[in-house]
Design a protein around this nucleic acid. Structure first.
Lengths: 327, 327
DNA sequence: TTGTAGGCGTTATCAT
DNA sequence: ATGATAACGCCTACAA
């Protein structure tokens, strides 16, 4: 409630002096600084960030719009973004688009209205509504999934290659009826992982393709796996950790044991991967690093909008555990 | 970049009319509304939320400060808060205090500066720095952990009772050397769960207490469990799902199997609970509901600050699975 | 070194 | 029904 003029009055100085004193500007009499500080403390004065930002025409806030708060992959990204932003004096507001283009648009509107300094976004769609951000000149960096315009900053994972390697690993282990459980068509990572799977089969001359798509959720994984099971696969590549839960449940329900009856590799190294029996072989994506990298890119662009667009691609690594051993 | 006056000029009206037209105020000539809309669209005009909020002296933003973004329990709360807030036209910004009183204070400062409409907080400490929020009159509701002042809104879980029931369940199953792995002293949920454990032992006349505390993390659970193992417990109550991961790892490393060699019950119903063998018996907390309840309380208080403080306590429920069967 | 004053973009009050 | 204008609280030339 207390404003800068209240403090000024109490300290017996002008608002300008209060502003300068509180913002540590070079030239202010130490005695006055003390008086101002005391007055501010006494009044419980907190500068009004709204007014300040309006005046300064900038906000020390970054928006992070992700497609699923409950997915550990995205929360790791969030930590990465936050850690970097924090040390640079920025706050991060996390928004959950929930894989819905509509919510994404709403949050982008909010970001626009609140004049955030920049946006980190995992786009639900290539043709995401970042058009508006561009127009306004708000810096954006895409993570996990690319944007159509190659003119924006992006931090991606070479997920197609990773899927190819993972599938190759299954082939090397001796599996031949390998199924791929992936996300919805149109979701770039889902498409890429499927493509990588196909790459590997082709490279190895394996003709049989067993593919099934569903939502990037446990329920989706369960359903897609059940469908695939009618084709008696001897191994499964699962494109997402949430789906992996459903896939493993479906396998269990069918009396099939990972690593003995069916080889399994899943994307994302979840903390419980080593708790199941046998432990789950995974494709570990550098989620935290994606976050830090994205934040750095964003801060750099905020500092200098004329920078050429940077597209970082990080690698994923296969962690072999028991579930992909040949039964 | 385009401001309201740009739109006004283009539409050939005053800024007042633009404002009224765009905000759907009662009395504006439909023809003008159309002209204004067109001009706004053409200019790619987005109202400046900063200026608007400054003028209106209010923000449609809620801050949610939680102690761990990577904990599914808290992300479920986040979803709950968000879903309710969303339908009421509020945005939610998520902040990660990371179990650090310092970060918490920083985020509270940000919330104060940005003049958010209200705060949902899982306090790192009873004597949390919400003092400042109170002073400013910013509504707060505490979740998961109580605040010292009973004068604030809170949404809690009767976690002591739940721990007591869970321990009772182990006793009923025939276990007698039951250990409790809980979080740091001072963290209210950790203390409460320990207290519930003791309640149950006492009620059943079991004299042997095996207690071990550590950080609410996998590494903490691992360490605490390892310590407890020197006492040859025949069962374990684990106070948190992150710790459960560490505890299960420690058990495995010692060649002990849950449900056969050692009965296990853990707090929080994680999605992978049914994937391990045997499935994990858990105390399921109504996390999503905590979030929705907290948001409703907060919105109610924002609407009417004179409301008497409400303290909701929700129940948790024990889900019996294989890990707590007597071996 | 300090004070005065103007303006950031909106909305609301008061005229018209 | 519409327009001029005064705030909202802060920062920063510019003046003293």
């Amino acid at each position: 409630m207390a404003t800068i003029s209240d403090v000024a009055r109490k300290a017996g100085v002008s608002t300008a002096t209060v502003s300068r004193a509180l913002n540590g500007k070079s030239t202010v009499d130490p005695a006055l600084v003390a008086r101002v500080r005391a007055a501010a403390a006494e009044l419980g004065y907190h500068p009004n960030g709204l007014a300040r930002n309006l005046r300064r025409q900038e906000t020390a806030v970054l928006a992070l719009i992700i497609s699923d708060v409950e997915n550990p992959f995205f929360t790791s990204i969030a930590r990465g973004v936050e850690d970097v932003a924090q040390t640079a004096g920025y706050s991060v507001v996390l928004c959950n688009s929930d894989e819905s283009a509509d919510k994404e648009r709403r949050y982008i509107d909010v970001a626009l209205q609140e004049r955030v300094a920049g946006v980190v976004l995992s786009p639900t769609d290539v043709s995401s509504s970042i058009e508006r951000l561009r127009q306004r000149g708000t810096p954006v960096v895409a993570v996990d999934r690319p944007l159509a315009e190659s003119t924006s900053d992006q931090v991606l994972v070479d997920t197609r290659l990773a899927a190819c390697e993972a599938t190759g690993h299954l082939i090397t282990a001796g599996y031949r009826r390998i199924g791929c459980v992936t996300g919805p068509a149109g979701v770039r990572t889902a498409d890429d992982r499927l493509a990588g799977y196909r790459d590997a089969l082709e490279a190895a001359g394996v003709g049989l393709r067993l593919e099934s798509r569903a939502e990037y959720r446990a329920s989706g994984g369960r359903q897609a796996t059940r469908e695939l099971l009618t084709e008696s696969p001897d191994a499964l590549l699962v494109a997402n950790s949430a789906m992996a839960i459903g896939a493993l449940e479906a396998l269990g329900a069918a009396g099939l044991r990972p690593g003995r009856d069916v080889g399994v590799v899943a994307f994302d190294d979840v903390p419980w991967a080593t708790l199941i029996d046998p432990p789950l072989t995974v494709v570990a994506q550098p989620a935290y690093e994606i976050g830090t990298e994205a934040a750095k890119l964003l801060l750099a662009r905020i500092a200098d909008p004329s920078l050429p667009p940077a597209a970082t691609t990080l690698g994923a690594r296969l962690i072999e555990r028991g579930s992909s051993r040949r039964g």
